[in-house]
Design a protein around this nucleic acid. Structure first.
Lengths: 191, 191
DNA sequence: AGCATATATATGAAAACTCATATAAGGAGG
DNA sequence: CCTCCTTATATGAGTTTTCATATATATGCT
């Protein structure tokens, strides 16, 4: 899995806690990697066990102690090795597309919400892409270089293009569904 | 998970064996749902246990007996209920994008293969989309209606648009990388 | 006063997925 | 002749992911 490597990628910039990393994920790479909290903590444990990071416990009196993960040389090597290894072949698992595939079973009225939700989802994604560059600029000042930011932006570009394609597609289907342009299988249906 | 429902979707057309379904998945919905063989058999078991399908054993002498799964009324209800339920929010997990995000760590030469592989992948996907309509036409004759085929094609359309966007994106990055248009972080680098 | 939110970590249990392997026989191609 | 592919089902073992829940305190909002 590459959650390990995504975490390593951030730890390579700076030591972070699990809590920090959850926030970072939600703000920056959510569009291509959504990690849940428990998974982050567990994976951080594995990273430490593998010797890719060392834990610095920062004692706090009023809150639970923070566990800062510092990447090790072995961790940096692992990250770089992964980055230069063959790109894993994605196995897509898209439930929404399964729904579309079998939507012919439904009436147009029943199928509509599927595509309306797709429109809403794509619009939401696009809205996030509007605010993302500011987040990147912020991180760039903190830890990143111009070069890093270039590649961060590349992921945004593709995400945006994809979301735009999805939006146009879903809007087209909504239009077709509401204007009854779709075959209904009643033999002798309006041509 | 919606492998259950994807399987149910096909069983709704016709009774199939696990072996059949594996072949069908690989030929028709692979672009948005890649299921592996062992997972299909296990899930089929769950479907039968849930009462969504009944098993007809077709005895064969020279080969293992076939187990044909016939969808039940309960299975049809479940399928339709799922199809009209809220679209699940996708949690994207794209390892290739994680690689791109952290590719700034690599030199241009080291980063190149990442995008070359993306180009090759997108070209491969596009080639599959070229042959897919023929597969759909074939299935349509067997089991599908014009309406069903309409929705099948919708998934292809979005898949193709997405693959095209990916290809253009990856080709652009390859061009930028090979012409050294990318920031290098050597302070005082060529402006 | 009460309630939600932010800070911070962690586990139990289950579901889902992957990878390798097993069995068994016929047919195709080199 | 031998190897690979197709037909057909199945399990063991492990990894990854999800979902719910637990603990503890401070702050801000209504």
């Amino acid at each position: 899995m590459s959650l390990k490597h995504a975490l390593l990628g951030f730890l390579n910039y700076h030591p972070y806690t699990g809590y920090d990393l959850k926030a970072i994920f939600d703000r920056s790479v959510q569009h291509f990697w959504a990690a849940d909290q428990s998974q982050i903590y567990r994976t951080l444990g594995q990273i430490a066990e593998a010797g890719w990071a060392e834990i610095e416990v920062v004692t706090q009196t009023e809150r639970p102690d923070r566990k800062l993960y510092h990447i090790t040389e072995a961790g940096r090597r692992e990250l770089k090795a992964w980055l230069t290894s063959p790109v894993p072949v994605e196995r897509p698992h898209s439930a929404p597309m399964v729904m579309v595939f079998f939507a012919g079973l439904l009436s147009n009225e029943e199928a509509l919400p599927l595509f309306e939700q797709a429109v809403a989802y794509a619009e939401g994604a696009l809205a996030q892409y509007d605010t993302a560059p500011a987040v990147i600029a912020e991180y760039q000042q903190e830890i990143g270089s111009e070069r890093e930011a270039y590649f961060w932006n590349l992921t945004l570009e593709l995400g945006r293009k994809t979301a735009e394609a999805q939006l146009a597609w879903a809007q087209g289907v909504v239009a077709a569904l509401t204007s009854d342009e779709i075959p209904t299988d009643q033999e002798g249906a309006a041509p």
